[in-house]
Computed example of a mutant assay.
Amino acid sequence: MSAVFSRSPAAKAHRLRKRLPWWALALPVVSFIALLALVASPSEASAASAPQGLAALLEFLAGLVRIGA
């Protein structure tokens, strides 16, 4: 014996009406742009002896994928 569970249309509509606050979308966008700016202009970073640029990041990510596989 299984019971049939269904929500009323009013409960579904109320759940769909909820909206995110403006900062819930703005914060990830701002942080992504800041990280992208750091990767795109590595000459302004303080650690000049470290490997620079997007190529170093891609090599690091490739190494992570090889370790995980």
Rank of each mutant, 00 (worst) to 15 (best):
R19L: 12
V29N: 01
A56N: 00
S8T: 14
R66N: 06
L35W: 15
L20Y: 09
L58G: 04
E44I: 03
A37I: 09
W23V: 01
W22E: 13
A50S: 10
A56Q: 00
A45W: 05
L20I: 06
R7I: 10
S43Y: 09
P9M: 06
A34D: 14
K18N: 13
P21F: 00
L27V: 14
A24C: 07
V65L: 08
A55P: 03
H14L: 14
A45G: 15
I33G: 11
K18H: 13
V39Q: 04
P21Y: 02
A13L: 13
L20M: 11
A47P: 01
S6Q: 07
I33F: 14
G53Q: 02
F32G: 14
W23T: 09
R7L: 15
A24D: 13
L25G: 12
A55Q: 07
P9V: 05
V65W: 11
K12V: 15
A55K: 10
A37R: 04
S46I: 03
A26N: 05
A34H: 05
L54T: 11
W22A: 14
S2D: 11
S6V: 03
R66H: 11
G63M: 01
L35C: 15
K12E: 15
W22G: 07
P9F: 05
L54V: 03
P42M: 07
L35D: 13
A47T: 00
Q52T: 07
M1C: 01
A3K: 00
M1Y: 00
E59D: 13
V4I: 10
W22C: 02
A55C: 00
A3S: 08
W22Y: 01
A13P: 08
G63V: 00
A24V: 10
S49F: 03
L16P: 05
F60M: 02
L38D: 14
L36M: 12
L54C: 04
L61V: 05
V39R: 03
P42Q: 10
S8G: 11
R19C: 09
L38H: 06
A50E: 14
A40P: 04
R15C: 11
L27K: 12
L36E: 06
P9N: 14
L25H: 12
L25C: 09
A69Q: 12
W22H: 07
Q52E: 11
L36T: 12
V29Y: 07
F32I: 12
A45N: 13
A55R: 08
S46A: 11
F60P: 01
F60C: 00
G68M: 06
A62F: 05
F5K: 00
K12W: 13
P28A: 03
F60G: 06
S49M: 02
A11P: 04
A48P: 03
A55S: 15
R17Y: 02
P51S: 00
H14Q: 15
A34M: 10
L20E: 06
A26W: 04
L35P: 02
G53D: 09
V29I: 13
P9E: 13
A13H: 02
L27C: 05
